[in-house]
Design a protein around this nucleic acid. Structure first.
Length: 709
DNA sequence: ATAGGGTTAG
């Protein structure tokens, strides 16, 4: 009401009312213009900008195109700006010009907002009759790239041809980027070839395009070609992209060559380049050099630490990765979601449930971006740490489940011997419209294998190609061999191998040999063993399994012979090794080792366990040891298997009733399996052992695997 | 006023 009555009083009233303190003449108002422009130049915050804007609204002579453009530019482009404010100023301006549109389109394209908004402004701009210039097009093409909007991009391409801007190098480069992100690298290459002017960004964009589409070799090739055919010299941005292409190739020699090239051309290193170098050397297997580079980096950021953590994880150096994580915290770096995915990955592999739970709590407490990566890593961690129920809890609560989430859960259930649940989840997955991939089927087939579902396994194997258009890999064929062999269908398994389109690998023969152990097939075992030794003569698996088969058949002479052959051939023995986590620390035990600070107590405990077991009628299965020594010594050797050391340690330093969780690098031997069953009853402990293949939940003298593993 | 930058899963 008030405003209306004010407005009708007399024209110009608003002006005189609101600017009572400033002189009224047009000339005097205009005199303020340079001052206002200067204030806009140095403006630091929205607060300040709003003050300037208020002055402009009060003083008509200040309301020039230039002033409004500056206001819009600040709101749209400054880090402390406000895009909504920018767009409202633009909308209220009588006639915004091209500059204003460019500023707002650029602001939106570079922000986290939906790039569609900039397309809408672009359309409005065209409708008002403006023709895009060499600034508009790169911004609008960037929006199209973000949206993967190839169709809109094509329209812009056409407009660039019509306006002649297609010869502008900025337009060409952003068009190339658009085609590269939309997967049509050929169009990008064509633009590049036809370009009248190729600068470093053009080359870099092309290199990146090839690297991203999965052609890293091509990317490196283009980089080298640039060096040979032009005077252009790579800068940090180019190097980061080339180094990351190299890391994908895993070719250490090539990496060194590129690194030398970089030094020869005096490309300065910055934190981005440093991170890319660390990542590259890690991925190519030169862990030591990567670590040395990391240590000498003058400036580090969270990504540097993440590169180290992930690199070590990929090399299987989980404990080292965790110690880097601890150092990171000591040095005051805040972990981000990527860090925590890496840490969870380590926890999963080391079976560190307590630490994993701590990470879970940290995520909730610190509002870490909890996206699919984090959710899937949590599911995997809980499943691999033996908390399959917790894994399922997290899984259920995840808003966006993808193929990774389902697969992690299915593989987890399969490892826990919950074959039926795994298959049920697979049906849920199909119902949710999520397409399984190759890894999902590894989970499904191994679920069938652990539960002995032969018919179902066959059916899923057929479905892979029939329904899901996936080609079974050698791993899937291996699963089928395992499934048949475990079910005692050894000759069917052999027939399957004969007809499969791959040369059988170590996994295939090893699995069959394992099946012969379960089903006591000595002669067949011998022939599979020969095949396995041919493929991996340097490893001990074949010999150990075969001597176990002999021993189970009471052919001790052959068993001992096998051991001797193994020693003569100097086969590398993989030492048994078990982890147990107590109070957030991982304790590692190797077979027979005595270096742990509490060794004495551990061995005393082992003695106590054995005597209590014997009271309960336990007889050692010395068959599993197969040493050419007296019975007593055999028994002693058994006692020192790494998982027993870990269990004994767990019994000593946890309170009664606490579940023990052990991770072992090899399969559990059958004596340790029965000892653990005994312990779970006598000491009233739940013991969860993850061996190389699956989980064993020991409780009340029984194991979840039903003695079939 | 313009384009190209590193780490993430089963």
């Amino acid at each position: 009401m008030f405003i209306r009555s004010c407005n009708v009083r007399k024209p110009g009233y608003m002006m005189s009312f609101s600017s009572s303190s400033v002189p009224l003449s047009y000339e005097v108002g205009a005199q303020q213009l340079p001052f206002v422009l200067q204030r806009l130049e140095s403006c630091k915050s929205m607060e300040e900008l709003k003050q300037i804007h208020a002055t402009v609204i009060k003083v008509r002579p200040l309301q020039t195109q230039l002033v409004f453009n500056k206001i819009i530019a600040f709101c749209a482009l400054s880090t402390s700006g406000n895009l909504d404010y920018a767009s409202s100023v633009l909308t209220r301006m009588g006639s915004p010009n091209l500059y204003a549109y460019n500023a707002i389109i650029r602001g939106i394209s570079c922000s986290k907002r939906n790039p569609i908004e900039s397309l809408l402004f672009y359309r409005e701009m065209l409708e008002k009759g403006f023709s895009p210039d060499n600034f508009t097009l790169p911004f609008i093409l960037k929006a199209c790239s973000h949206l993967r909007a190839l169709r809109e991009g094509n329209v812009v391409h056409a407009q660039s041809i019509k306006t002649g801007l297609v010869r502008n190098v900025f337009v060409i480069n952003t068009l190339m980027r658009l085609y590269a992100v939309c997967g049509t690298i050929k169009s990008a290459q064509k633009l590049f070839n036809d370009s009248p002017q190729r600068d470093l960004v053009s080359w870099t964009t092309l290199i990146q395009g090839y690297a991203e589409i999965g052609l890293p070799r091509e990317a490196v090739h283009v980089f080298l070609e640039m060096g040979e055919t032009t005077y252009l010299r790579a800068d940090q941005v180019t190097m980061v992209i080339v180094l990351s292409a190299c890391s994908k190739l895993g070719d250490l020699d090539l990496c060194k060559r590129i690194h030398r090239h970089m030094d020869d051309n005096k490309v300065k290193s910055d934190v981005f380049v440093g991170n890319a170098l660390v990542d590259m050397y890690m991925k190519c297997g030169d862990v030591d050099y990567a670590c040395r580079l990391f240590e000498t980096m003058p400036v580090k950021n969270v990504v540097s630490w993440n590169s180290m953590i992930f690199g070590l994880t990929q090399q299987g150096e989980f404990k080292e990765a965790l110690s880097v994580f601890r150092r990171m915290q000591v040095n005051g770096y805040e972990p981000d979601d990527v860090t925590l995915v890496g840490v969870l990955n380590c926890c999963a592999n080391l079976g560190m449930l307590e630490m994993g739970k701590w990470v879970h709590a940290y995520i909730d407490r610190n509002q870490v971006r909890a996206d699919r990566f984090i959710g899937n890593a949590l599911v995997d961690m809980y499943a691999k740490c033996g908390s399959i129920d917790q894994a399922f809890e997290v899984f259920k609560c995840m808003e966006h489940k993808d193929v990774y989430s389902y697969t992690a859960m299915i593989v987890g259930l399969a490892m826990h011997g919950e074959g039926e649940k795994a298959l049920a989840l697979f049906s849920d997955m199909s119902r949710a419209g999520i397409k399984p991939d190759e890894v999902t089927f590894i989970g499904i087939l191994s679920a069938c294998s652990h539960v002995g579902l032969v018919e179902e396994g066959h059916r899923y194997f057929e479905d892979m190609s029939r329904l899901y258009n996936l080609t079974p890999q050698i791993e899937h064929h291996g699963c089928m061999v395992d499934l048949l062999g475990r079910a005692g269908l050894i000759s069917e398994a052999e027939e399957f191998i004969r007809t499969m389109p791959f040369k059988p690998d170590a996994f295939v023969w090893g699995s069959l040999l394992g099946s012969c152990r379960i089903h006591g097939k000595v002669e067949q075992g011998e022939s599979f063993m020969k095949r396995l030794v041919e493929i991996e003569p340097e490893r001990d698996g074949a010999y150990v399994l075969m001597s176990n088969i002999y021993a189970s058949a009471n052919r001790w002479g052959d068993a001992i012979m096998m051991r001797k052959t193994m020693e003569e051939r100097k086969v590398k023995k993989i030492p048994g090794c078990s982890f147990i986590e107590v109070d957030g620390m991982v304790h590692e035990f190797r077979k027979g080792e005595k270096s742990h600070p509490r060794t004495k107590e551990i061995y005393t405990m082992l003695g106590e366990i054995m005597s209590r077991l014997k009271e309960q009628g336990y007889v050692a299965e010395t068959a599993s040891v197969l040493l050419d020594v007296a019975e007593e010594e055999k028994e002693l050797a058994l006692c020192h298997h790494s998982e027993r050391l870990a269990i004994a340690f767990g019994l000593i330093c946890t309170s009664p009733g606490t579940t023990l969780r052990i991770v072992k690098n090899l399969r559990v031997c059958s004596d340790c399996h029965s000892v653990t069953k005994f312990i779970s009853r006598i000491f009233q402990r739940e013991i969860i052992v993850r061996d190389r293949n699956r989980f064993h939940h020991f409780r009340e003298g029984l194991c979840s695997c039903k003695d079939f593993w």
